[in-house]
């Protein structure tokens, strides 16, 4: 019974990942590609994904852009406000490592310098297809998290 319930929960989690998009100092290139995912041509609502715009509701945190000294705290704030289980997807060269800007003085670096990142989506900007792939990879991560929780 418990096992079945767990399976149901796992499958719904895979079918309804709500995303929170945070532009953490990106050049807007990746941002608009994230937004493009919502639009008719890519329509990630097919997978039940909606951009909820609020950390309290979100399962997946999509971060685009470099982390700088000022938005570092914002990023951790948002991450803290998300209820578990949660995964983080870093998008674009900037989100992964700071990209072309990583040597600039106000750049801390990639998202994983501040919060743990589960999926890296490369690209400059990352294409919507790549973002969808990244989201699919993130869904697998939910299953991993569930297994870990069961093991504990």
């Amino acid at each position: 019974m418990k096992k079945m319930l767990g399976k149901i929960i796992a499958s719904t989690r895979m079918k309804s990942p709500w995303i929170l998009h945070f532009d953490c100092g990106s050049c807007n290139g990746c941002d608009i590609e994230v937004l493009a995912c919502l639009t008719p041509v890519y329509d990630i609502e097919r997978f039940g994904m909606v951009n909820v715009g609020n950390p309290m509701h979100a399962d997946i945190l999509l971060v685009t852009g470099t982390v700088n000294h000022r938005n570092k705290k914002v990023l951790t704030n948002l991450y803290d406000q998300m209820p578990a289980p949660k995964v983080v997807i870093a998008i674009g060269a900037c989100g992964l490592s700071g990209g072309i800007f990583r040597d600039a003085y106000n750049v801390v670096g990639g998202v994983d310098r501040v919060i743990p990142v589960d999926v890296y989506v490369p690209g400059c900007p990352a294409k919507p297809e790549a973002i969808i792939d990244g989201a699919v990879l993130a869904l697998k991560k939910f299953e991993v998290l569930r297994q870990q929780k069961l093991a504990v």
Partner: peptide
């Protein structure tokens, strides 16, 4: 709504998936 916007939209049962998922989330 999705069809009206030229999209495909979620499955019919999406609302239930959402709610069951929310139920299983951390209480915060």
């Amino acid at each position: 709504t999705a069809r009206l916007q030229g999209r495909i939209g979620p499955p019919v049962w999406q609302a239930f998936y959402d709610v069951i998922k929310l139920m299983s989330k951390e209480s915060m």
